[in-house]
């Protein structure tokens, strides 16, 4: 066999063995990986409505159990009606924290621009249609220690109790202040801002824009909640 042929055959065999090995590992672990991703999402949804404490680490079965018992997901169509998820195209996905048959809070998926990539998370709003019950982030590429702090409990806790309406009742969304709210925001708008992260001005700016866009998109649903109790379709 010539040297050239030998090299080609050898590389082909190495490539084949490597790809078989990786295919095996990837498909063998697939179920586990998908479950991890699903549980991580569910954990973030539960966190946004305050059903689990981010500091304690509940195990996956507990999370799945809690999620099944408390969360129901639907879609919102163009006319702001709540319909079963997947029944039509162009639905805005929304989940509800259902307590004794009534929605106690609604949960919006948040996708925002960040400094280095997309920020993805959830924001939950109480059934009064204006008070935030929580915010969580499950994926981002921000700088660890700076913008990366958006995934930390201390930052997310600041959202709890904030308002998406200003004092006159007009839509204001919720923003990240450049510094401490108490120092840089006028007193009549302090309910619409959370403390910023020092060294992460741009992350804050982008996330403010992203949250505003998401909240505006779901404003129709929020209005329904403000008018009175909303019933979920069966």
């Amino acid at each position: 066999m010539s040297d050239q042929l030998k090299s080609i055959v050898f590389t082909a065999i190495v490539a084949l063995v490597c790809s078989l090995l990786l295919t095996g590992a990837s498909s063998g672990l697939k179920a586990r990986k998908l479950r991890n991703i699903a549980v991580d999402r569910q954990k973030n949804i539960l966190q946004s409505v305050g059903l689990i404490d981010p500091i304690q680490k509940p195990d996956p079965t507990q999370i799945e159990q809690l999620y099944q018992n408390n969360i129901q997901c639907y879609g919102v169509d163009g006319a702001n009606r709540i319909v079963a998820d997947g029944s039509e195209k162009n639905l805005l996905p929304v989940c509800f924290y259902v307590k004794e048959g009534e929605p106690a809070a609604y949960i919006l998926p948040v996708v925002s621009r960040g400094l280095w990539g997309k920020i993805r998370g959830y924001m939950a709003i109480k059934n009064d249609g204006k008070t935030i019950t929580g915010f969580s982030v499950y994926s981002h590429n921000e700088t660890p220690g700076l913008g990366g702090e958006i995934e930390k409990p201390w930052f997310q806790e600041n959202f709890v109790g904030k308002q998406i309406l200003d004092q006159l009742g007009a839509f204001a969304a919720v923003g990240i202040a450049k510094g401490k709210v108490a120092e840089v925001i006028q007193s009549d708008h302090q309910a619409n801002y959370v403390d910023g992260i020092s060294g992460a001005t741009l992350t804050g700016k982008f996330l403010t824009g992203g949250l505003k866009a998401v909240l505006y998109e779901y404003e129709g649903l929020s209005e329904q909640f403000r008018k009175g109790p909303v019933t979920l379709p069966n």
């Binding site: 590389t11 190495v14 490597c18 590992a25």
Partner: peptide, 26 residues
């Protein structure tokens, strides 16, 4: 074979790294 040794080394290393990554993810 001497002339393809780098390619072979890289295939082995890349496979092992992806394997480690898969295990961490799972």
């Amino acid at each position: 074979p001497r002339n393809v040794r780098m390619i072979v080394e890289l295939s082995v290393i890349a496979s092992l790294v992806i394997l480690a990554d898969e295990i961490l993810r799972a």
